[in-house]
Every structure is written in C-alpha cells, then in structure tokens.
Design a binder for these strands. Structure first.
Lengths: 342, 342
DNA sequence: ACACCCAATGCACAGGTGTGCATAAACGCC
DNA sequence: GGCGTTTATGCACACCTGTGCATTGGGTGT
C-alpha cells in the first residue's frame, strides 16, 4: 500500500538528468542553469517531492534535532520552559525530542542514551537534581549540553547553564514583607530539592540581615522529604503553617506556590485570615497563583525566557560560537495575600 | 574536536571481520557463532559504540519516531495528554517530536510538513479545530494518523481518533445538579471551540429533557469569540455569570473549568455566595480546580488515558493491526462548589 | 583555426547500517 | 575419500542525499 516516497532519483529520471543535478537544483545551487533549475523544481513540486531529512542527516552529519529532558511536562513550570525552547527551536528550523524522566536517574540515563543514538545536535536538561554518573555520561556523547535551572556540581567542557537567581528572588520577597512593616517573618521550605531550597533560604536570611530584622530558628520550618513531591508540597504547607503561626510570625515566605497554597488552605482550616492575620508569599508565579483566594503574592520566574535563553545558548554552542552561562532575575508580583501587619 | 563516532566498520576492523558480521553479531543473529558474537559485543562495548539510529532508519525505512501536534503544551490539558503519549511511546521504544501550533493553521501545516520530511512513522494530532486543507495534507503524507479529542469532518483512510464523550460528561454534570434539587439551571459556553461547545450544550439539553426539567433560552449564554482564548475563558466567566444570575438560575454548568473559575470570581465581586446562592460546575478537572475557593465540582476528563489510548492506537496502526476509534467516558468529581438550592 | 576558459552537467564516492546471495569451511555419511 | 549438507562469514547492494572532481560543450580571444 504505502508505496515508496519519491526521491531525487525519481525526479532525475523524470527530468532526464542525473540525481546530482536534481540535488543541486533543489538547493538553488548557482552551478545549475536557471532554465534547468526551474524545470526541475516544477517537476519536484508536481511529483509531491518531500526531502528525506534522514538521508540528509546521514550525509551532512547534522540532524537539526535537539533533545530535552524534563522531570514531567505536566508540571506547569517545565511546560512553560518547553514552550520557550520550542519557539526558538522552531524559528531555527530545529525539531525537539522531549523526554519526561520523572526524576528517575535510570530514566534520565535512558533518555540521553536515546538522544545519543538519534545523534541529536544538542541536549537541554532541566531536572531538579543531577547525579554524577549522569554528568559523566553527558560528557560521553560529545555534543553541546545546556543545563536549565540546575547547578552543575562540576564544570565540564561542553556544559553550560542558564538559571534563575533564587537568592535574589527570595530577597525581593522578604524585602517586600519588611517594607510592609513585618518584623517576625517565617520561612516554610522543603527538603527534597535541597539546592534551590538552600538558595532561597539564604536569600531569606540575607534580606533579614541587611534590614537588621531579627531572625529566630523557630521561624524556619523545613518539610521532611516525601516521594510524591507535587501533591505533597500542598500538604506540607497545609499541615505546617500553624507551626509558624504559633511561633508568632506575622508573615511567611514559602519555598514555592504550591507550599503557599497549602498554607492558605491550612489557614482556612484554622480560621486564620489572610492577609489580615498572616501574609503569605510564594515562589514561581504558577498559573494557579492568580486564581486562589486570596490571589497570591509571589516571585515570578521568567520560565518562558528560561527556555528561550537555554535554546539560544544551545544553538550558539552548536554553531561553535562562544557563550557564557547566564542568570535570570525573577521579579516580585504583588497580589492580595500580603498586607501590613495589624 | 568532535571526532567521528565509532561505527560498525571500526569495530569490524578492530575485530578482523567484515562489517556485516559485526552488524549481525550486535543484533544477536543466530548466523554468527557464539564465540565471535561474544567477542564482537565485548569490543563494541569497550569502544563505546552507540548504534547510529539515523543510518538504521534510512536502511529499515522506519524511524521509530512519531510526531505530536498540540495547540500549546503550556495548557495543562495537553500537557497531561502528552504525558500519556510519552509513557506509551517510551515503553514501545519510540521517540516523540512535539510541535506547538498555537491554533495557527499555518503553523499546523508547517508542523506536519516537518514531520513528513523527518519521515515519522505516525502522527498524533490534538488540536481544537482542523481545517479541510489540513486534512488533505494529512492524507498526503501516507502515514497513520490518530486524532485525539477532535472530530474529523470527513473520514479518511488512514485517520482514526480517540475522543472524550462531551455529551455524556455534560449530562452527568447537569444530572448532578438536578439531583441536588435545582430546577433552573444555566449553561455558560464559548464560541471559539464550536464543536465541543455544541456537544456539551447538547448534553445539557438532553439531561434537562430526560428529567423533565424546564429550559429557557435566557439560561443559555455563549461568550463571543475572542482570540486569546486561554485567559479569556476566565474573563468570559467573570463578566457573564451575573447575566445568568439575573435570569434567575440557581445553578450553572460551565463549558470548562476556566470559565467556571471566572464565574467564581464574578460571584465574589457581586457578593454572590457559592454554593449557597449559586452552584457552579466546570469541565476538565484542571489541576487548578481543586485549589480554588470553593474547590470546584467538575467533570473529570481522563487526559492521561486519552494520550495513552491515542498512542496505543497509533502503534497498532503502524504495525498494521486493525483498530477502531474509541470514545472515553468522563466522570463527575464532586467538590464544594455545588449544593442544594435554598 | 587553435588554444583556452568558463559554464553546466555527470560520475562516483561517502555517510552507517541491514540483508540476500555466494562462498568457504567443516562435518557427517557411506 | 568423495559428496552432500550444515554452519559461518564475506561481498555487494540498497536506503537517499550532497559534493569533489572529471568531463563535455560552447564561447572567446588572438
């Protein structure tokens, strides 16, 4: 049924020329006379010719293809990153393979092995944590790699990164609370994403210190590690917020929006009014943040830009241009979950 | 720098055999003696050989690759669909190209053209609407196509589909409201996705008719067409909900969750208590639905399953097995936005 | 008229892999 | 030991495209 697709040889036969001539004519080579070129292009169009990119890839040693590894595309954060990646890739004529690794090292390995077999021109990785054997493997495939929003443990020749300044974002959030007049500010963090949690906690501390506002170890609560992180962030916020309230804080900065949303739910259960009795700040600016009650004040991560920048950087690396790792600045979005303390 | 990757010829040279022998040995062909096979496999491992899938594709005329077209991966609906697709694809050893077409016919065309050039083994399409020239083009590429949650205008030889029963879902939602005791029930729809809107409206009417509950044209409001649908769904719900309330309904069934969330916001602005004064039902069971206030009663779409089924169907088509289009049943999820009328 | 040059085209190979067929070696059988 | 049979391997081609080099033909200059 599915008869062979038409190749340049078929066109050559139809036009009474050699396949080389067809190849050149279709690529607008000046070596071919205008008359012949036009005739061949017309025949090609008429026969419904569609270039075989597989054969081209084999010949040119370039697949015009890149691979993207994410934990899950169902997580809106990575979905936005992907959107940015895809936009830039499409504009550059590159196609992208997406692989969801679900934070499973084994699946991550499998993903980059697949990319290697498929001879992608470059790899983008956006994963929470990355293991050392994984990085070694990355080095094996001899292809440019860009890390999105993750910190490389060691520097490798072909590895660059674009990330978001967690510390600065946390600072901005806490400074906002200080400016509103809060002096007893808590942090509600997580333990299953240690790097970013540490950076946000550091920003929290720095802001307080710079402003000369007091700290207290009782005002810092870190949720214990859990497996199903996505749902659990909400549960963590919901169950732990009252600990901070009992410790006497008037405002809390949460590791991310899902924790903050959990905190909002916890407050409702304990009939704590937000923002009247407690101000709550999140991190990420998840799509959800604007629809909860009250709409959440949060730190906006430029996720789309993260993807775009990462992809641009990868293209530069593929084309052997110099690049340097960059850091994107998050911005505070003030909504209705924060107010001056009573 | 990036020296040529090792090929089977390199291995052949190292082992003192022909490349054919290496090829067969690596594929565990019984034609090769166990001794030689083992030795070659050892050498291959040692040299860090990674099969070139591009060359294999050219030879076998199979790329083990499929293309997925969606409007946007940032829309959580399609993100979940993708997740299902990816899971099944990975298990079958297929890689997936994702292309976001943003409901732009031109970009959709470009996407399937790219897939054609790359000689994907099959195509999955999940788009709101599909134009007729687009379908024609689909037919041109001579590859199995599965439509996910969209209705084909005409039947084509290679085109099958898996969809969700909009009508049944709408019925379930409205029956729930009737069972709670509501007798004046409104529908808040959209006009930029005419097919599914019609089907949900039909389900709404059917449920009312079957229960012998009265209808009224004033209780049906359809938002006018807008371009930026995603954000506008919320705005539509927010601005139009009071029209229905003034028409005297005690409950509304919304086209989807975003419209319903807009309705919730509109109610808050007009200080209409939900669910005490007005019950609200959505459609989709977006991730957001559980976090709004009050948590939204809605019709759950099995999005993951949609993706999985679609991918399974595509694999069956690729392997030339018989398949038939299927319809998945949505289920009602009762949360806190619905209650008996006062 | 002849040498020369330039424009246009074809030949042949390369890229990496899989496989039908031929070939060679080994083995069993009488 | 010759012959037929099985087993193991190599040869050569195919998949489709791009390109260096050779070739051809026509035009130009003297």
């Amino acid at each position: 049924m599915q008869r062979r697709a038409v190749s340049i040889s078929d066109i050559a036969k139809a036009a009474g020329v050699s396949h080389s001539t067809v190849s050149r004519a279709l690529r607008d080579s000046p070596l071919i006379s205008a008359a012949v070129r036009g005739r061949i292009q017309a025949i090609a169009r008429e026969m419904g010719y569609m270039p075989n990119e597989i054969a081209q890839s084999l010949q040119t040693q370039r697949t015009r293809t890149i691979g993207l590894v994410v934990p899950s595309i169902a997580d809106p954060f990575f979905a936005d990153v992907f959107d940015g990646v895809e936009q830039v890739a499409r504009a550059a004529g590159l196609s992208v393979f997406v692989s969801a690794a679900h934070n499973d090292p084994e699946q991550e390995m499998a993903a980059i092995e697949t990319f290697h077999r498929r001879r992608v021109d470059g790899v983008l990785i956006s994963s929470s944590r990355l293991s050392s054997p994984f990085l070694k493997r990355l080095n094996d495939i001899r292809v440019p790699v860009v890390l999105i929003n993750m910190q490389a443990e060691a520097q490798h020749e072909h590895v660059h990164s674009v990330m978001i300044d967690d510390r600065a974002g946390a600072c901005a959030a806490v400074e906002h609370l200080i400016q509103l007049g809060h002096r007893r500010i808590g942090y509600l963090g997580v333990s299953n994403r240690p790097l970013s949690n540490q950076r946000r906690l550091a920003g929290y501390r720095e802001a307080l210190q710079d402003a000369g506002v007091g700290m207290n170890d009782d005002w810092i609560v870190i949720a214990p590690e859990e497996d199903r992180q996505y749902r659990d962030d909400v549960v963590a916020g919901e169950t732990l917020v009252h600990v901070l309230v009992e410790a006497g804080v008037t405002a809390i900065f949460c590791y991310n929006d899902m924790v903050a949303i959990g905190a909002l739910m916890g407050c409702r259960e304990h009939t704590i009014a937000v923002p009247d009795e407690l101000s709550v700040v999140g991190f990420d600016d998840n799509h959800v943040a604007r629809y909860v009650t009250p709409p959440l004040t949060t730190v906006h991560q430029p996720k789309l830009e993260l993807g775009k920048q990462g992809m641009r950087m990868l293209i530069d690396l593929i084309d052997e241009r110099d690049v340097q790792s960059t850091m994107l600045a998050p911005t505070l979005v003030v909504r209705a979950s924060t107010a001056a303390p009573r």
